[in-house]
């Protein structure tokens, strides 16, 4: 995957020099292990910054909102689906974009890896499908497969669905993946157990809104939690208000979420926030046969009416 970096630099340089784009959005090497920083490059002289490895979990589509330049953007499978969603929702024009597609084999789960070791992880290197983790008194080589972000290990759209150029040949898509094992587990619980499950899950929340802000879908000028006339949600750490935030945020992602995992990755206290959105994603698939961001030509289910829409819930 490392050689993707060179290809990204090469393409970006060409696009900037030819004037195809004004800017390119990609990643630069992070300052701590398992982190890369999204960055914007304006001239071909700067493209050397660009890097690609298994730590590019942030969704770059998030950086497209409100841009009006001709924009080159590096996009893995999920990013590309969110770009499609952005286009469908009129947040950006297809003509403005040059999508540098990255066939992706998943990103590593920094929360999980950090929790695997007692001491501090100082260096994380990767070679082929192996990840080498080094600390002061330890060194361990792990299969990348075994430490993927949970959304990546169940991903079935690793290749960009929309692109102008790929940095490499498409990778093989995962087949026969059970995407909703965890959701089904919750579905079988009794109401009180469900309530408790989410109550426990949200306990560590500090309401920093990193999950919301890392999400490319959350581009509202003013979020409902920030409205104060009227104020929809209390601002304290009251559990009902916390739940309202998470629950309504998830609702706003219904039929739009691509399960890119940026929310979970961003959370500073390791809450599996996807447990909310995944249920909606599963429902959209089962009720409307819908997966978000797969095509520019189909309107999303919550956007359209079909006479055969499921309506059993209406008495």
């Amino acid at each position: 995957m490392i050689d993707y970096s060179e290809k990204i630099k090469e393409i970006s340089k060409r696009l900037l020099e030819e004037g195809r784009v004004d800017i390119v959005i990609g990643f630069k090497k992070g300052t701590v292990p398992m982190m890369n920083e999204p960055c914007l490059v304006k001239s071909s002289g700067e493209v050397e910054k660009f890097v690609w490895d298994s730590n590019c979990g942030i969704n770059l589509a998030n950086y497209l909102t409100g841009r009006n330049e001709k924009t080159g953007i590096v996009a893995k499978g999920c990013d590309s689906r969110n770009i499609v969603t952005h286009i469908i929702e009129n947040k950006i024009k297809r003509e403005q974009l040059y999508i540098i597609g990255v066939p992706c084999k998943g990103m590593i789960d920094k929360h999980r890896v950090a929790a695997m070791f007692d001491g501090e992880i100082k260096v994380v290197d990767e070679k082929d499908a192996k990840i080498i983790i080094k600390g002061e008194n330890f060194e361990k080589t792990l299969d990348k497969e075994s430490i993927l972000q949970s959304n990546c290990s169940i991903c079935i759209h690793r290749n960009p669905v929309l692109n102008d150029e790929l940095v490499a040949d498409p990778v093989e898509e995962q087949r026969d993946v059970d995407r909703y094992e965890d959701v089904r587990k919750i579905e079988t619980m009794k109401p009180q157990e469900k309530w408790q499950y989410f109550e426990d899950m949200l306990k560590p929340c500090i309401r920093c809104y990193a999950c919301r802000n890392a999400c490319p879908l959350c581009y509202c000028p003013t979020c409902f939690v920030d409205e104060h006339r009227p104020q929809w949600v209390g601002k304290s750490q009251d559990p009902t208000d916390l739940r309202t935030f998470h629950f309504l945020r998830a609702y706003h992602c219904a039929g739009r979420c691509t399960d890119c995992g940026a929310c979970e990755r961003a959370c500073p206290v390791g809450i599996p926030v996807r447990q909310f959105t995944k249920k909606l994603e599963k429902d959209c698939l089962e009720l409307f046969n819908w997966e978000a961001g797969m095509s520019l030509d189909v309107r999303p289910p919550l956007d359209t009416f079909r006479p055969d829409d499921p309506d059993d819930f209406i008495k």
């Binding site: 579905e187 109401p191 157990e193 309530w195 989410f198 739940r243 909310f276 209406i314």
Partner: peptide, 28 residues
Amino acid sequence: MEHMGIESGRLQFSWVSSAESTKFVDVV
């Protein structure tokens, strides 16, 4: 709502026309 632990049945939907007063009463 049900998924996060509200009992099924607490949230109900119905389609009642303004002409269907009997249906409205029944639903309520």
